[in-house]
Design a protein around this nucleic acid. Sequence first.
DNA 1: ATATTTGCAAAGGATTTGCACACAC
DNA 2: GTGTGTGCAAATCCTTTGCAAATAT
Lengths: 146, 146
Amino acid sequence: MEYDEGRVMGLLRQRGLRCTAQRLAVLKVLDETPHHLSAQEVLSAVRQDLPRVGLATIYRTLELLADLGLVARVHLVDGCHRYTAASSGHRHQLICSRCGLVVEFGECALSGLTETIARRTEFAIEGHWLQLYGRCRDCRRGVALA
Amino acid sequence: MEYDEGRVMGLLRQRGLRCTAQRLAVLKVLDETPHHLSAQEVLSAVRQDLPRVGLATIYRTLELLADLGLVARVHLVDGCHRYTAASSGHRHQLICSRCGLVVEFGECALSGLTETIARRTEFAIEGHWLQLYGRCRDCRRGVALA
DNA sequence: ATATTTGCAAAGGATTTGCACACAC
DNA sequence: GTGTGTGCAAATCCTTTGCAAATAT
């Protein structure tokens, strides 16, 4: 939905990076799935278009796209390292703990809190990271009245 | 500071778990360092007292202590899986991005936000996870006026 | 006494790296 | 044409597991 090939190509070229089929394909895959994906899952999906890609390329690409702010790393409670398309701006994620659905939300009610904390701790706050976990509408159904 | 051997032993016994030198040592190490530590680093520290411990024991112990709520997993922006002593109650962490110092804070200004999000997304929110990043007082000095 | 926990070594996964070839520019 | 990016395979790193011996209760 947010995906705009032209914008992406622009972003890559701005930094002197090349615009390859693999990079566009990884981004497209992430953009088309509402769930977060592991590198392995991204590989499988990308291979439907580009059968010869390797896992190493997927990792290299995911890192690059994360640096560009185009994909977001999602950390689950247990393991880590799954990926999802990132929309622009300051956003956080709501993640379904059953099916993995990722919903982003933009509100950030933390500014007041960070100021208080900064004053008390004498930290210079650089950023924060917030994820909410829960059951999405469809997954609530399967669990009766939770 | 928070560390109370008697309390820990009680917690272990309550669950039918045994109170071993390794478990106490891991907890003590985490409690004595204000930084977060990797499993490897915990191993080195514990070996000063118990030279024969193995990494597997460290992993098993860290997981067990995390389940008991005595240690908290810290996830950094890049990699993951570092550990630090956890105080009780609902707390979040402020982490120095330069030296790794971990400061916990208890305020949770998120309740209002979670309600709004829950209503709009139809998610049943189960929990959240918040970490703040910044430079601690000492590390700010080294970087002139940030 | 006995069930849990440990240490060791081996297995398992995920991620990274080296290098020749392919491709975007 | 030239330098970046890719595919492949091997290497590396982190974490888990199986099992006999050690140990807390």
